[in-house]
Design a protein around this nucleic acid. Structure first.
Length: 1128
RNA sequence: GCUCAAGUGGCGGAAUUGGUAGACGCGCUGGAUUCAAAAUCCAGUUCUUUCGGGAGUGUGGGUUCGAUUCCCACCUUGAGUACCA
């Protein structure tokens, strides 16, 4: 009995922690309710992937922080949702399956069990009743459902949101696609309502696919042969796969893609309204890559013999014609102001050539020409225009100037009720025109520098290259294109310095100056960005500059007073444009605006915003992922109805691709869709007319993690994605904690899906996480031992080789303690002396032998807090079999290791397992120590030795409650000092938690316990609130002390202590007395002392007199309650 | 190259709004306790010093009575990104 009591009275972390973990699980202490009087708070950790290696001490860092916050919020009276689950589909389990034949579901299950056990050991307050796993059919049913929603949606730029595909079909039926302002594929053909109706179902489906938010298309993808799958851009690091570092090549494949580009602007705008770390926002901003500039068309100079025809004007004539009409008349300007606002199919262009005629305004899509009366050749013009399928209406200057509204309404009428039937002829004219005169469209962010263009560069893959290259340059260009194609993406990326290119022989016409500019090809221009062509401005862009220098192309200077003899001038601000016609004398901003205005006015370009963000490839040729709810009928994808979800992942024999290169699902025998009976059936039945093949790709890792935070709100709902009420109640994550490595992957895709779900009215908010914190990585502190490697000097010729070998063989492996040497030379001397002293080396051979130092990682568990190596442990360590008989050169009787901070990893033997820490020091110590290491957001090294500090803090805390072996808590009233200590702590801890400064609150606890120990405080009135303060950090010991204090409920139900400022009021202040800003001594003075009195007292003080040494101070600064500073 | 972040004792780090630099902890030194070790407790621990003091927060300037904190330039390290026109 006595024994039992004693046992109880000592702080026994093992017993206490098990006890309370069991209590929490049995009582479901942390189960969140979906309806509560309390305000809600949602704390979430980033979705873990349950890897086979389990957790190391770096992983729980963020979980501990979020757990402290969750527990704190409960004390503060919030209804807290703090769930956890697993992103359990993924590559590693599948790679393992390929190697061992084990079903990934099985290994995943085992890994999850390990994770769960490890998490439970640390005492997290998760609501496990809401656990989700992405690989669970009950979960991925809804991932498939979201995919179907995306398929059934298109992005309407006019309403700026996703809409149901049926609204698009309605428009097609009514007016064709010319008026549709949608985010779609680039190569859309224009059709009318009648044409739409005439299309076959398959044709219609093909067209719709070009608009859907998830769509099937032939895209250049990143194919990783080693992994047998495609990878998204964010899954590639430095040209190789993120997982496994395998090479990646470009390959054209039919793939599902997600039209994330539709959301580029909103994803950018949304960043302003969320409290996320700036570096993370920057990285998303960068990834989206918005650049504002202009599209400019450069015509390729006509090869006269090839393309001249009587319909066409020569370029010179055309330019002259444009020049003539450059300045719009007042009436023209008035009308243009009205027409230019029109968008889409009713968009008008001005000064446009139709055939050989320059017309005032034309709406190409609606075949309407608007002209001013009084042109000489009016009759001929009209006849020609009608022949080409255009309507013409004419107005006088007066009509326009007097009533422009009436004129516009007549134009609108003419658009709606054309007189001349549309013929195919127009299409032909326009397209044949394009055939004849090639145009190079370029995107530029610096249209202000357009007069600095001295050449153009096309990507070698550009489609025009073959068409415009002259006979003379053909061989050179072809050789260059071929050479580029051979280089891998990685080579091209790695090698930025080599300048290469070839001249095509063709020239473009500068749209403003009319000058000829050479057209080159060069691999510094990427086919995949912008239009795959650039207008090169060598004076303003370093790459263009380098290219021009290398190939001796002129570098015209268009900047006022800037020297460009050495490098391009890339500054924008403060630079004045020169030699640039109408742009001369203007600064960047004005020139930019005017240039775009002129481009639009003259119909040679327009302002445009470009994004770097590409649509995301959504297919993976893998087994262990969500199957698509898709089957193929006549080669067209069909969605399976919601009712029949989930489409469960089929069993396969092998997890590798099939022999004919199909994805692993191609191995499944039961993988066909019976459209009549609505179920998955055996492939044998594919002969039947109503049975169709199912999609063989699976979804990527980010599918399941892009919406899981919503599922936690109503995790077990089997009829809905999550109920409306639960979504409305929890709304969004209030605090999201995780690593910064997800910046451009998970966090961008999840925002995209959330915005989409918001558009469709499925979720109530369009950003899923209000506040996000990136926890820093915990690094390992590696330990090194220094091995001596002996070898014989070369070329001495004084002994035969055999005896040399003998000399080496006699030398055992020697390790030298760290502080015995400073340089490699010293190392060699130490080793040689050791060998000679111990007669392990014949002195005759001493000069022949060279010793080099090889640092070797030692397992960190073999090293103590003082960096001393456990030598026997090292020799007997399974990894060190080779060193069983090694000798150690010691310093002061011990072997000291070298230390270095590195990433925590198995290969560096610096991994520390939290289980071992929990066993030895307890979960509470682990939690406190992880927080104590430093600021949450920063990377910091782990050194197990430091944990003794927090461990002894817990023991001291425990001791406050005991007198020897007996619990001893007094109900007496607390003293002033005790109250001051407590309230100081309450204030600081509360502020710290609100600021996520967890490291400083651990210090605060230590200070409090040190003070209370010194005061011999055992008052309930102090210890009880202190226990609540500590409980978010060290919940097990807090629960135990709480129950020892006589409470029956969990401490998590207790309110957070309320800070009272009155306990901190002081009557005196220990003033620092500074001289010229340097503190020299302190002086205790009453706080209510006036400035004058302070000055008198300080000046009279002997130390002041000594310090001044007879000088008279120039000035005395007194800040009451703060400081005294004497100047002079 | 570009963007961002950070530089404070032997180490991790603290310093609220510009007001006593180095809190708290590790390690180290000395002492107590112990047959001994561990554990525990006490004292000291930025550097330098002629023991009065002096210097000191990456470097150099600036603003200020006063700067780890604000401004400018530079150096170093880390992270992200990379022919993005």
């Amino acid at each position: 009995m006595q024994l039992l009591k004693e046992k109880q009275m000592q702080y026994n972390h093992l017993e206490i922690e098990k006890k309370w973990q069991k209590f929490w699980a049995e009582n479901q202490t942390f189960k969140a309710s979906n309806n509560s009087e309390k305000p809600k708070y949602y704390v979430l950790d980033m979705f873990p992937y349950p890897s086979g290696a389990g957790l190391h001490v770096g992983h729980p860092l963020g979980y501990i922080a979020s757990d402290i916050y969750a527990r704190y919020k409960r004390h503060k009276g919030f209804n807290v949702l703090h769930p956890q689950g697993y992103d359990s589909f993924g590559l590693p389990a599948e790679q393992y399956a390929i190697q061992t034949g084990q079903h990934p579901a099985k290994t995943t299950e085992e890994n999850v069990a390990t994770y769960r056990r490890q998490l439970d050991n640390i005492g997290f307050s998760f609501d496990w009743s809401r656990e989700v796993r992405t690989s669970n059919p009950e979960y991925y049913k809804w991932t498939q459902w979201i995919f179907i929603q995306l398929f059934n949606s298109w992005y309407n730029k006019d309403s700026d949101k996703a809409e149901d595909i049926s609204t698009l079909e309605k428009i097609f039926k009514k007016e064709g696609n010319a008026t549709v302002n949608a985010v779609s594929d680039e190569d859309i053909t224009v059709f009318s309502a009648d044409e739409w109706k005439a299309f076959s179902t398959k044709e219609q489906e093909e067209i719709l696919l070009q608009y859907r938010l998830t769509f099937l298309s032939d895209t250049e993808v990143n194919w990783c042969p080693a992994l047998g799958t495609v990878l998204a851009n964010d899954e590639i690091v430095n040209g190789v796969s993120e997982r496994g570092s395998h090479p990646v090549v470009r390959k054209k494949m039919t793939q599902w893609s997600m039209r994330i580009s539709a959301y580029a602007q909103r994803l950018l705008d949304g960043l302003e309204n969320i409290d996320w770390p700036q570096p993370l926002k920057d990285s998303q901003t960068n990834w989206i890559g918005r650049s504002q500039g202009a599209m400019v068309s450069f015509e390729v100079e006509n090869n006269a013999t090839k393309t001249s025809s009587d319909v066409k004007l020569s370029y010179k004539e055309l330019e002259e014609l444009k020049e003539l009409r450059q300045n719009l008349s007042k009436a023209e300007t008035t009308l243009w102001d009205e027409l230019k606002g029109k968008k889409g199919a009713t968009k008008f262009r001005k000064k446009y050539t139709v055939g050989s005629y320059l017309v005032d305004f034309v709406c190409v899509a609606k075949n309407l020409i608007v002209e001013f009366e009084g042109k000489e050749d009016e009759a001929e013009r009209t006849a020609f225009f009608h022949k080409e399928g255009f309507n013409v209406i004419r107005f006088t200057n007066e009509e326009v100037l007097q009533n422009v509204v009436k004129v516009v309404s007549e134009i609108n009428f003419a658009i709606q009720f054309p007189k001349v039937e549309q013929t195919q002829s127009k299409q032909n004219v326009i397209s044949s025109e394009v055939e004849k005169s090639h145009k190079i469209d370029v995107f530029t962010t610096r249209p202000d520098t357009i007069f600095g263009v001295s050449f153009m560069t096309l990507a070698p893959e550009h489609e025009l290259v073959a068409k415009i290259t002259t006979e003379a340059q053909k061989a050179e260009v072809e050789a260059y294109v071929e050479a580029t194609a051979k280089r891998s993406e990685r080579d091209r990326m790695a090698d930025v310095k080599t300048i290469s290119g070839a001249f095509t022989g063709a020239y473009a016409i500068h749209p403003f100056s009319g000058e000829k500019v050479q057209i080159w090809i060069g691999d510094y221009v990427l086919a995949s960005y912008g239009t795959g062509a650039v207008m090169a401005v060598p004076c303003g862009d370093q790459r263009d500059y380098d290219f021009a220098k290398y190939f001796n192309i002129p570098i015209p200077n268009i900047f006022e007073g800037v020297d460009i003899s050495e490098a391009a001038h890339t500054d924008k601000e403060g630079t004045v444009i020169a030699n640039s016609d109408f742009l001369s004398g203007l600064k960047y901003k004005k020139a930019l605006k005017l240039a775009i205005y002129e481009l639009e006015k003259r119909g040679i370009g327009y302002g445009k915003i470009n994004y770097r963000l590409r649509d995301a490839v959504f297919s993976r040729q893998r087994y262990w992922g969500e199957p698509f709810p898709v089957y193929y009928k006549d080669g067209m994808p069909q969605m399976i109805d919601d009712k029949h979800l989930p489409i469960v992942l089929p069993e396969v024999e092998k997890y590798l691709p099939t022999e004919d290169g199909k994805p692993p699902l191609g191995n499944a025998t039961e993988w066909a869709w019976d459209s009549r009976n609505k179920k998955v059936v055996s492939n044998d039945k594919l002969k039947n007319k109503t049975v169709y093949p199912l999609e063989l790709n699976t979804m990527p890792g980010w599918a399941g993690s892009s919406w899981y935070f919503n599922r936690y709100m109503d995790a077990t709902n089997s009829t809905e994605f999550a109920s409306k009420e639960s979504l409305e109640y929890w709304k969004e994550v209030d605090l999201y904690i995780g690593g910064s490595e997800h910046a451009t992957g998970h966090l961008l895709y999840a925002r995209f899906w959330q915005k989409f779900l918001f558009d469709k009215g499925i979720v109530p908010v369009d950003e899923f996480a209000k506040k996000l914190i990136n926890q820093g990585m915990i690094l390992g502190t590696s330990a090194f031992v220094y091995k001596a490697t002996p070898f014989i000097k070369n070329g001495c010729g004084c002994a035969d080789e055999k005896s040399n070998d003998d000399v080496i063989e006699k030398i055992p492996t020697v390790f030298v303690s760290k502080n015995l040497f400073k340089s490699d030379d010293e190392f060699e001397t130490v080793v040689k002396n050791y060998l000679l002293d111990n007669k392990l080396l014949d002195p005759n051979f001493a000069d022949l032998v060279m010793i080099t130092k090889t640092p070797i990682h030692s397992d960190v568990s073999l090293v103590n807090a003082s960096d001393e190596l456990d030598i026997d442990g090292f020799k007997n360590h399974p990894l060190n079999a080779d060193y069983k008989n090694a000798e150690f050169v010691l310093e002061e009787g011990v072997y000291k290791v070298g230390r270095e901070v590195e990433k925590m990893s198995k290969s560096k033997y610096n991994v520390v397992n939290p289980d071992a820490i929990c066993e030895e020091y307890g979960a509470d110590s682990l939690r406190l120590f992880e927080m104590f290491l430093g600021p949450l957001e920063q990377a910091k090294p782990w050194k197990t030795s430091g944990i003794s500090g927090v461990s002894s803090f817990l023991k001291k805390l425990w001791k406050l409650f005991f007198d020897g072996e007996t619990l001893s808590v007094s109900d007496d009233g607390p003293t002033k000092d005790e109250l001051k200590s407590l309230h100081k702590t309450i204030k600081k801890v509360e502020e710290d938690i609100e600021n996520f400064s967890f490291n400083t609150s651990v210090s605060t606890f230590m200070i409090a316990v040190n003070e209370l120990t010194a005061l011999k405080c055992n008052k309930r009135a102090i210890l009880e609130p202190l226990t609540v303060l500590v409980s978010p950090y060290a919940p097990h010991i807090a629960e135990e002390l709480w129950s020892l204090l006589g409470h029956k409920d969990s401490i998590s139900t207790a309110g957070f202590p309320v800070f009272e400022a009155k306990h901190l009021v002081e009557s005196a202040k220990n003033y620092p007395i500074s001289f010229n800003g340097k503190m020299r001594f302190t002086l205790e003075l009453p706080l209510d002392m006036s400035k004058d009195e302070i000055e008198k007292t300080v000046m009279a003080h002997e130390k002041t007199i000594a310090q001044l040494d007879g000088r008279t101070p120039k000035k005395i600064i007194i800040v009451p309650g703060k400081i005294v500073n004497i100047v002079g």
